Simulated assay, not measured.
Amino acid sequence: MSPSTPDAPNPRKVLRERLIAARCALDVQRREQFTAAIAQHLSALLARQAPTVVGFCWPYRGEVDLRAAVAAWLAGGPGRVAALPVVDEAGMHFSAWAPDTVMTAGRYDIPVPAEDRAVQPDLLLVPVNAFDARGYRLGYGGGYFDRSLARWLPRPVTVGVGFSLAAVEDLLAEAHDIPMDWIVTENGVVVGPQA
């Protein structure tokens, strides 16, 4: 990916839209197969990491739907908490979620828990529109995850999650970008200590 010039469109924006379109074009059967494989890989990674509070995102624009995988993780033992991001004046925080949680429309009309019960995840499942071999991800350009990760202490473990079609050679990371600890696709852990 080459840097933008005054006469050319932003290459990150062009890449983002191209890969979102490709993701949304996946047929139902392939999406289900990929999602099931991702859920298996995440289950093994979560078992090794043993987090108490897992943050994840409601599926948006064809992203991997992690709701069933997170619900299965929740059911796997006592004391586990799942949470969804809520965008607020400070940037972003996470609110506790369970499969029976009443939801309401949040920013960008993405569902958020109607009752805001703030929790701090110790592991985040972060959607990726694109990723490279160094663990950098391309989100939607708002910087919510990067700004939040920069201020959270201790910083949660980060696991980028997406389909393998999101892999690119080099995202040309910017100064504020924070790489993921792992990235998981239907092909397994493709970035991280055991990749």
Rank of each mutant, 00 (worst) to 15 (best):
M1C: 06
P3F: 15
S4H: 03
T5F: 14
A8W: 12
A8R: 14
R12C: 00
R12E: 04
L15Y: 13
L15I: 03
I20M: 03
A22W: 06
A22E: 12
L26G: 05
R30N: 00
R30E: 08
R31D: 01
E32W: 02
Q33R: 12
Q33P: 02
Q33E: 11
F34A: 03
T35E: 14
T35D: 10
A37D: 13
A39E: 07
Q40P: 00
S43E: 11
L46S: 04
A47D: 08
Q49V: 14
A50D: 06
P51G: 15
P51V: 15
V53Y: 12
G55I: 14
W58M: 13
W58Y: 13
P59A: 15
E63C: 07
D65E: 06
L66W: 10
R67I: 04
A68I: 08
A69I: 13
A71D: 07
L74I: 10
A75P: 04
G76V: 05
L84D: 09
V86C: 08
V87T: 05
G91H: 11
G91P: 07
M92P: 01
H93R: 15
F94I: 12
S95P: 07
A96L: 12
P99C: 10
D100A: 15
D100H: 14
T101P: 10
T101V: 10
G106R: 05
D109C: 04
P113K: 11
A114W: 00
D116Q: 14
A118T: 15
Q120K: 14
Q120R: 15
P121F: 10
L123G: 02
L124T: 06
L125P: 02
V126N: 01
P127E: 02
N129Q: 08
D132W: 11
D132H: 11
R137F: 02
R137Q: 02
R137N: 01
Y140E: 01
G142Y: 04
G142H: 12
G142E: 06
G143C: 11
F145Y: 15
D146C: 04
D146Q: 14
D146R: 13
R147M: 03
A150L: 09
W152D: 07
W152L: 15
P154E: 14
V157C: 12
V161T: 05
G162Q: 08
S164W: 09
A166W: 07
V168Q: 13
P179I: 03
P179H: 08
P179T: 07
M180G: 08
M180F: 07
I183R: 10
V184H: 01
V184S: 01
V184C: 00
E186A: 04
N187P: 01
